[in-house]
Simulated assay, not measured.
Amino acid sequence: MRNASEIIEQYLKNILMQSPNGIIEIQRNELADQFQCVPSQINYVISTRFTLEKGYIVESKRGGGGYIRIQKVELSSQGAILDHIFRTITAQIDQTASEGLVYQLLEGGLITDREAKLIKAAVSRDVLLFKLPQRDEVRARLLKAMLISLLGK
């Protein structure tokens, strides 16, 4: 059985897919009531499952009619894809951010499952046995080179 975070994540992704403009606005308390959970559970799902690395922009407005806006970043053109890679992978990238980017490219159908597994294995902290920050620098160079080679066609 799936846990509450997975159910909430899937619900949000479904309504996001049905949105004509790829943007949804939700009220945290209403969503918490709907799923019979605490509002912090909604915050957790949004902050861990809807990150920029995974292809989402999240804005929140606090206070009386506050809301959370989630927007899916669409990588529809070659230029947009490469631009997103260069914005996400700077001089350094940690393992979590690199896995998020790979996940986003896999979800978007831009890389195969096999390519994703190979990339994740190559940039893993278990393979890159350097001390920080050198490990994140090497990971960034490797990841950028692999993705440009795969996607820069």
Rank of each mutant, 00 (worst) to 15 (best):
L150E: 03
V38E: 15
T90V: 14
S98V: 04
A122P: 05
A97V: 04
P20V: 04
D136G: 05
Q36V: 08
L82V: 15
T88K: 08
K144Q: 11
S40N: 15
A80C: 13
K144D: 05
L16A: 10
G63H: 05
K13N: 03
G79Y: 14
N14M: 08
I119Q: 06
A122V: 03
R135P: 00
R28G: 10
T90N: 15
I119K: 07
I81G: 02
N29T: 08
V58I: 05
A122H: 13
S40R: 09
A122M: 10
D33H: 03
R125N: 15
S76M: 11
E137C: 01
S19W: 00
L151Q: 03
E30H: 14
K117S: 12
A91E: 15
R114W: 09
Y56Q: 09
I46V: 10
N29Y: 06
Q104V: 10
G65L: 02
L16C: 07
A122D: 14
D83W: 11
N43E: 02
H84C: 14
I148K: 10
L150N: 08
L101M: 08
M146P: 01
I26D: 01
Q78K: 15
A121Y: 12
G152Q: 10
R141I: 11
E59M: 13
I26W: 00
V58Q: 07
G63I: 09
I8S: 03
R125W: 09
A91I: 11
F35L: 04
V102G: 00
S76G: 11
T112S: 15
I7L: 04
L143W: 07
I81K: 05
I57T: 11
S149I: 12
D136F: 00
I111M: 05
D83C: 11
S149A: 13
S19H: 06
Q71V: 11
G22A: 04
G100N: 02
A122G: 01
S47Q: 14
N29R: 05
V38N: 15
S77F: 11
Q18F: 04
K72D: 09
L52I: 11
M1H: 00
Q134L: 10
R141H: 10
R69M: 12
E9I: 00
L118H: 12
T88P: 03
A121W: 10
I23F: 06
G152W: 12
L143T: 01
A32M: 03
N29F: 06
I7P: 00
E6K: 02
Q18E: 14
K117H: 12
I8K: 01
I24N: 02
R114Y: 12
R125D: 15
Q95N: 13
Q18R: 02
G64F: 07
L132I: 08
I57L: 10
F86Y: 14
I7W: 00
L106W: 13
I57C: 08
